[in-house]
Amino acid sequence: MQFIAARPKHVKSFQMQKNRKPQVENNPTPVNILEFDDYFDLEMALPGFKKEELNVEIKEGDQLTISGKPEQVTMDGTIRRREFKITSFERHFPLGKTIDSSNLEARFDNGILQVRLVKREEAKKVSPRTIEVF
């Protein structure tokens, strides 16, 4: 069987890249962090994980720890091509003083884990107000 996957034309076959580690091994859990006025959203791409295999916790007061341990699934068949692996991981994010660590919300949808980190009152961006002059 042959798979073509829009590879560059000068690469003759996938076999040539056999020894090359896929990028996924460099960063198996890519993260996006977006800042809003009142909170940060941290997103982690975790395709293939189930909600119950993930763990989000606050350690030592100000360290957000996200970990995952996939259930071992026995697969009958021969692997013909492997570009990604679903493996255990643990990542830490120091929260600093701006985040209210008692206020954490996490959801997992379609392989994306989203953790909402609410800012402390004093760190929230205050939109400019017009002060009426009497």
Partner: peptide
Amino acid sequence: GSDVVNGLPRANVIEK
């Protein structure tokens, strides 16, 4: 790494 250049989603193929 070719897949990075293309930014394509990764695939695993299993023959059953």
